[in-house]
Amino acid sequence: MSRTTSRSGRFATLLASGVLAAAALSAASPQASAGTLTPLVPVGGSLVSSTGATLTAAQAVQLVRADQLAGTPASAGRGTTTAQPADTTSIIGTDNRFRVTPTTTYPYRANILIERSSGALHCTGFFVSRDTLLTAGHCVHTGGSAGTWYSGLRFKPASDGGTSPYGTCTSRGTWAFTNWVNSADSNYDIGIVKLNCAAGDSTGWYGTWWQSASLDGTFTRVSGYPGDKPKTQWMSYGSVAASQADRIFYANDTVGGMSGSPVWQFRSSTASYCANGPCVMAVHTNGLGSLSSTHNSGARLTQSKLNSIVAIINTP
């Protein structure tokens, strides 16, 4: 609880000093040194919520702690692995996906089945804090100025075959990048949901990181809830075939329902950022199509996107 208190205190300080408004007007500065919070590049990272609240990229930067500038560390949470049969990996035809079972091991238990209010399958999400999840923007808002927000979505961490070992949560704050909500920009197709539960305390959560260097050749895991294998979790391996500033392309097999899945890897203990844990580099959003006829793709985490994501994580 000390973390919550300290974050709240930080907000109080920001509000009292008017630093949010000041930051919004300040010029971009490229660096932040330890212990200070100099505004970084406020590009394209602004958010809007389903209630109309806004968070500009410059405001977001003010809510990011110095130790969060490169991303966030992974956490296994306090959950215990439920005694279940050993992994029954299966491969179907040329499909290189395999089922994740049991789903109660870390980090797979931090993956979340997202259902619509009707109970119909919808998407995948994943914890990035005790009560915050990331998913695709199109899983929370249909995209573009004529788009609409989904309401009544249900979030079931580590769901498996109809079971919900960590319960069912709902949203108490749904955000998406302005570029997605205003113009359906696939590069910003990321949604952030603040849940009414803190199941992340039990499931743990993924770390995140960004790097400006190319991610080409980086090993990728994509794990989530495909619609053709209802309510069971599946994963595939691959690697980044092409990286753009805001998007990466990979050959991992995915199908509808995997939208919002983490594109991640286990980071070594010597990694520069997000070391020694499962860390996310992108959010899976699209299968084959106009973005690429040969590779699936996801919205890449960047400095500006992560600033806004961390700002929401840091809100109480």
Binding site: G144, A184, D185
Partner: peptide, 17 residues
Amino acid sequence: PPAAVTQAPDGTSAPTR
């Protein structure tokens, strides 16, 4: 963002969904 960034064809002004 650099011009090399690829945007979805529907990511232009006032898209309809």
